[in-house]
Design a binder for these strands. Structure first.
Lengths: 253, 253
DNA sequence: GAGTGGTCTAGACCACAAT
DNA sequence: TTGTGGTCTAGACCACTCC
């Protein structure tokens, strides 16, 4: 039962009580919550109020509801670690990129769809690539799948002048991928920078990545630099935050 | 007006239409949406339905509502970059840690609250510190503020045997902070690893960090290693995803 | 005081899952 | 067929902001 004099909205009281039961384990992972009609009786509120409470928990990522079945406590995410700062030349030369290496290591079947196009750089891209806004860039838009499930979206952009006449402008870049073709063209890569953030997904991303409610995406913008410091590629990646963690390591000195 | 035969729920149609107006700029950043009663008339649906639509946009982080004023398009986040992989010894020796360096660089007034305690390591912490579950660890629980506003939560854990008799067990660790005291005690730091993820905040985190609806937190778990590979500290940090981006850089070889 | 969002009710009907 | 969540309505009253 809710306390009507406390000033705290009824749906928040219900949400807090259910959240408490989840975090203390009185409702354990995978377990079904009482039905909405039961909660109506238990707390003495109307069904819309119960639904508001459950919505709070859904957008916190604590529960998922399944139409016709019930509302369930979300099991803790099964998080996979991606070692990022090991994107070294030797590792790159052995395969077509980090994704295929992961596939080999974790035993899933990788597949990708690629769209290649050309566009004018907007301010953000121009800033990363140190070119003028409006300059032509080659865009490789990739959807990465593991065992058929979409696990990552990646949009790579390069100065058009660096890709003309190379396989980078083809759907299949060949062994070693984009970076190998860049180095063959004389753009020896010297360093990488990654900018990591997070936000809620767009509806498109949510459906592509099959995200549950209350699951953010991790965004990674990688920039690859040549030895003379000229940026040659920027890659915007989007990953499901409940499936991936990114790991970086470096020396103390 | 919504299409009642399309099969798409009315509140999703309204949400999609408003989202469209926002992303195409017909409703620009900071601009006020029509009032809920106006939207009721425009779309021919009831107010609860309009509210459901607005709720969708709120949990996507696209709009914020202000009681008594209206619903507004959220301006693009003002994202600050934190250079992570530059946590080198020389940088550390010049100040009390990365946070104070940022304060100096960006001109805000830093302040922190610290609680020191001791606890038994759970499985996760024991794994990071390579100790047995239940072993005693020193816990430094910090709230970091910039100009009085909470910007980061950080919980640092160290094997108790490494902190006994040092200022690490005091609220004020002195110049150079925890890492300086560790090195004085003979634990020369050799490398760092950071594991980066994201999730929706707990209600506590949301109120401490003053997060708007639909804003995730970025979680960073840093582990500091000694030259012999023994982990000496693990630090769990929580940051507002709409205010911070983490930057890592490394050489290609 | 007028307009805004915030909360809440008591229903109704639909869509889906399991039996 | 029964029970579940999903959608939707027509209202009511409250709390806050601004004039």
């Amino acid at each position: 039962m809710v306390d009507r004099r406390s000033g705290v909205p009824a749906f928040r009281q219900v949400a807090a009580d259910l959240r408490n039961k989840i975090t203390t384990g009185r409702l354990s992972a995978g377990e079904q919550l009482p039905s909405e009609r039961d909660l109506v009786d238990q707390y003495g509120v109307s069904r819309p109020t119960v639904r508001d409470a459950v919505n709070v928990l859904r957008s916190e990522g604590l529960v998922t509801s399944e139409h016709g079945r019930g509302v369930f406590v979300r099991p803790p995410a099964n998080v996979q670690r991606l070692a990022r700062s090991r994107l070294s030349r030797s590792a790159r030369e052995e395969n077509r990129g980090a994704f295929l290496a992961d596939a080999a290591a974790h035993g899933f079947t990788p597949s990708t769809s690629v769209k290649v196009s050309f566009e004018a750089a907007d301010d953000r891209v121009a800033g990363y690539l140190a070119i003028e806004t409006g300059a032509e860039v080659t865009v490789r838009d990739r959807v990465l799948r593991a065992d058929g499930l979409v696990v990552q979206l990646a949009v790579s952009r390069l100065r058009r002048e660096f890709t003309r006449g190379t396989a980078i402008e083809q759907v299949d870049t060949g062994p070693g991928g984009t970076y190998a073709r860049l180095e063959e063209a004389g753009h020896r890569l010297a360093s990488f920078t990654e900018h990591v953030g997070a936000r809620m997904p767009t509806p498109d991303e949510a459906s592509l990545l099959q995200l549950a409610e209350g699951v953010p995406v991790v965004t990674v913008t990688r920039v690859a630099y040549r030895e003379d410091g000229v940026p040659v590629e920027t890659n915007d990646m989007v990953l499901a935050a409940d499936r991936y963690q990114l790991s970086y390591e470096w020396a103390a000195d």
